[in-house]
């Protein structure tokens, strides 16, 4: 079944600085929206507002026609991968998976070249890249209709980046995904829709040259 996430009228300021000015964004099941933007442009701020852990001056968020004041509190609507690791360090990996996906899902979850050796390890023992991969796979395996990924490729080796991209593409059959990362080549590679946060607003990007036009990448890049 297809789902629809609609956000409108998102305004956010920090003191006198207006970070987001009237953001409108729509995401459907099957969408992989690559959100780009310079440092401090408000990408993470927007994702946190969408998830519901950051307040906005004004916001309007609807999933399948239902208005959600704090989206994350409605289970299985949205999941969010924050920039920094979120799995509790004291947990073992299989316990974390069991808590999210149920006991019966643990075996199949670890039936994976990268993760099989990490079963029963403590989260604190994993490398940064392994933990990122585990967290992304975990969120993409939940029943959530939408997944927000903030810098999924950060600190991840090229091989794991490839695996993550495959997971994202596979998951987009049943979910809508919004991701942001400064590794724009991988973002452009995996996403099927693109946008750029510029001057507090969202610009739809239809070709790479527009990234040059809006000053996100130097002209020599393309």
């Amino acid at each position: 079944m297809s789902s629809l996430l609609e956000t409108d009228s998102i305004l956010k300021s920090y003191g006198d600085i207006q970070v987001l000015t009237d953001i409108y964004l729509k995401c459907e099941t099957g969408d992989i929206i690559g959100m780009l933007g310079r440092n401090g442009s408000g990408k993470s701020t927007l994702l946190k507002i969408l998830f519901g852990t950051l307040t906005a001056d004004t916001k309007f968020i609807r999933i399948d026609g239902k208005f959600l004041a704090t989206p994350y509190k409605t289970k299985n609507e949205l999941c969010f991968l924050p920039q920094h690791d979120f799995l509790p360090k004291h947990l073992k990996t299989d316990k974390a998976i069991e808590l999210y996906l149920g006991k019966e899902a643990v075996e199949s979850f670890f039936n994976d070249k990268t993760l099989t050796k990490l079963k029963n390890s403590k989260v604190s023992e994993l490398s940064g890249g392994e933990l990122r991969y585990l967290e992304i796979k975990l969120l993409l395996n939940t029943d959530s209709k939408f997944v927000l990924l903030d810098e999924p490729f950060n600190g991840v080796s090229p091989l794991l980046v490839g695996y993550i991209k495959s997971l994202i593409i596979e998951s987009s059959k049943t979910k809508g995904i919004i991701l942001t990362d400064h590794d724009y080549n991988n973002v452009l590679d995996v996403a099927n829709r693109y946008c750029l946060i510029y001057d507090g607003g969202i610009k739809t990007i239809t070709n790479k040259q527009e990234l040059v036009k809006w000053g996100y990448v130097p002209a020599t890049k393309f």
Binding site: F51, T53, T70, Y72, K73, T74, K75, N76, C79, F80, P82, H84, D85, F86, L87, P88, K89, A96, L99, Y100, L139, T142, S144
Partner: peptide, 15 residues
């Protein structure tokens, strides 16, 4: 020390 770990619970709908 572990503020980010709250996201583990937020993602399951717990504030």
């Amino acid at each position: 020390t572990a503020k980010n770990e709250y996201y583990f619970y937020y993602n399951r709908g717990i504030s």
